[in-house]
Design a protein around this nucleic acid. Structure first.
Lengths: 163, 163
DNA sequence: TGACAATATGCGTATATGCGCGCATATTAC
DNA sequence: GTAATATGCGCGCATATACGCATATTGTCA
């Protein structure tokens, strides 16, 4: 049933997603390049702008990123003064990420270029089509996919599995 | 026109793609983990199996990867004896990547796990739906998106731009 | 045949990604 | 009120990603 190595690459959902992500990321990154921001960094700043100061964990969940990934990815942003890191008030273990004035300025500048990228993208691919694609991708992110083999990590809030 | 930082993250095609790619990659990677292969490595081996020995450039194009990325990503595979690197026959600048016996064995084992991942994925997301999504993602990869600002890199084969 | 453009790669640098482990603090159970 | 457990982070390790520059060949055309 499985075998058939010939078709594997043509039907692999993961490969299709990664290839598309690489292709599109390069495009957006090139558009944002004049501001010195990558799309990942842009999305971090935008989230902070939108939701205000947040802890690493909370922001990582928002961005569908691994906690440790965000913990490192934000370092260049702090180094460049676009965000600041303060101790968590309620929980002293946590750290709050704040968008600085410089960060907001940079975000504003990048936003203009992002908008152009978005426009070009939808001119090439279709606005309706892009919207539908985003819907599917969002649904995908929300889907479970299973593999609770090792369990624990990022476990669902409730619905504990076995006794 | 652009502004509206509120909606940016909800409509960004690039962010949607990257988040979905991260989510799905983690799933497939977990499924393949028992074989010690990542999905990226799996796709490299599968391509070599399917198309036979290839140069770095050719394989990179096939996989929609950056040339330099593949150049590094393949090193662990060579180190582990899953591929071998031989000098190009016709062109001494090039290197041919070969799938070794070990590589083929590992690929076969991984293929079984990949198949399970694929099945679980489509059980959760829908087989038809997944097929449609892949079609859209492939179309996306084929689309131009413009931004030929700096030009050159990975330039289209023909249609040289300006004199 | 001798420049010269084009092509195939490598390398340095930098960010992106995520796992496992360990530490500190918080929360809950008894 | 302390022990067990859960949570928030950092770090070491390893791969993934890609840009710019440097180098080695190859192909071409005057």
């Amino acid at each position: 049933m499985p075998s058939d190595p010939a078709k594997t690459l043509q039907v692999c959902n993961c490969l299709a997603l990664r290839q598309a992500a690489r292709h599109v990321t390069q495009f957006y990154d090139q558009c944002l390049a004049p501001t010195g921001l990558r799309t990942t960094q842009f999305s971090i700043l935008a989230k902070l702008k939108r939701l205000g100061p947040m802890t690493i964990n909370a922001l990582a969940r928002e961005l569908v990123m691994d906690r440790t990934t965000l913990g490192r990815t934000m370092l260049p942003l702090e180094r460049d003064g676009l965000i600041s890191i303060e101790d968590g008030k309620a929980d002293r273990r946590s750290k709050e990420l704040h968008l600085t004035k410089e960060g907001a300025d940079r975000l504003r500048a990048a936003g203009r270029l992002w908008s152009e990228a978005q426009t070009q993208f939808e001119a090439a691919f279709g606005g309706e089509r892009a919207a539908k694609l985003r819907d599917e991708l969002r649904a995908l992110v929300s889907s479970d996919l299973g593999t609770w083999l090792d369990a624990d990590k990022n476990r669902r809030p409730s619905t504990r599995a076995a006794p």
